[in-house]
């Protein structure tokens, strides 16, 4: 005896309405975020795309449009953010490890630290700049307007974000890894170093990309640290004076001559390209790290 079964799904009107609205909002938000990027890039491109050439990367800042370029600010930005990342990434990761794995959970002291870190992440960047100016450029350290001072401030700026994302990544490592390692006679430190840390790296990397991207576009604190000058040579070390991309772009954009405003747009395109490349490198490194763990 056979029976005809209809499998034609029919959602109730209410359910299909909710379903459809939700889907609409999803598409809308994707459209808005992609649209914004497309709009920015395409308007920059139509304005300044024709100006892009290797000369822009080999020439130094100048008031003479034919000789004006972005070499020293580009190198300066890479120096400052590179050194800041080298300092902030391991420090932040280790701090997060300490807070997650070793500090007494829930005791007053570590709760205080936690609260502080969350507050620090919300402090306006310019405040970090002021602190840097007072304590690193002039005060105790007297490092002057140098790459070192700037990197120190940017590292401070990146630290809270890196700590917060690393803690999330560490928290996401299954406790069963730790249990398994300890059951084999590993010390807590060995369990962390050999299992928890490698498992947390992809998550940390993703979050740190954001911190680095933000840092490379950061200008307010560096304004206070002496980056707003036409430096016509590349930094040679931590004690060099420097300038950075965002401030050079700003400088060009505030020139009344139209060519310089177009040059500023070209600089923005270069900065975006650098960001894109950095993100790409970070993603590739992360994928390599993930693959290596899963063989």
């Amino acid at each position: 005896m056979s029976q005809t079964i209809s499998l034609k799904g029919r959602l109730s009107a209410r359910r299909s309405f909710i379903d459809g609205t939700f889907r609409l909002f999803l598409y809308l938000s994707i459209f808005i975020s992609l649209g914004m990027i497309f709009w920015i890039v395409s308007s920059l491109w139509s304005q300044a795309g024709w100006l892009l050439s290797w000369d822009l990367l080999t020439q130094y800042p100048s008031y003479d449009i034919d000789n004006a370029g972005f070499q020293s600010p580009l190198v300066g930005s890479l120096w400052v953010v590179g050194i800041a990342t080298l300092v902030a990434l391991p420090t932040g990761l280790l701090t997060a490890l300490y807070l997650e794995e070793f500090a007494g959970k829930g005791n007053k002291f570590s709760r205080l630290i936690e609260l502080n870190i969350q507050n620090l992440a919300g402090v306006p960047a310019v405040v970090f700049g002021l602190i840097g100016l007072a304590f690193i450029v002039r005060g105790f350290v007297k490092w002057g307007f140098t790459v070192g001072s700037a990197a120190a401030v940017i590292a401070m700026l990146m630290l809270p974000v890196i700590i917060i994302v690393s803690r999330e990544a560490i928290r996401a490592v299954p406790p069963s890894y730790r249990e398994g390692a300890l059951a084999l006679g590993a010390t807590p430190w060995q369990a962390v170093w050999r299992l928890v840390l490698p498992s947390a790296i992809p998550g940390t990397a993703t979050g740190s990309i954001l911190a680095v991207s933000r840092a490379i576009g950061e200008s307010a604190p560096l304004l206070l640290l002496g980056a707003l000058s036409f430096v016509t040579f590349n930094p040679t070390g931590l004690d060099s004076p420097f300038t950075i991309m965002p401030l050079t772009i700003f400088k060009y954009a505030s020139d009344s001559r139209e060519e310089f405003q177009i040059l500023a747009s070209a600089g923005s395109l270069i900065l975006m390209a650098v960001l894109f490349v950095l993100n790409l490198i970070a993603i590739i490194l992360r994928d390599i790290a993930t693959k290596k763990r899963n063989v």
Binding site: P174, S176, Y177, E179, G180, A181, L182, A183, L184, G185, L195, S199, R293, N294, V295
Partner: peptide
């Protein structure tokens, strides 16, 4: 724990080879 090993309810291999 080195002398007294433990096998858990849910298999928990490490994400390694």
């Amino acid at each position: 724990r080195r002398r007294i090993g433990m096998v858990f309810q849910k298999p928990n291999p490490f994400p390694k080879s």
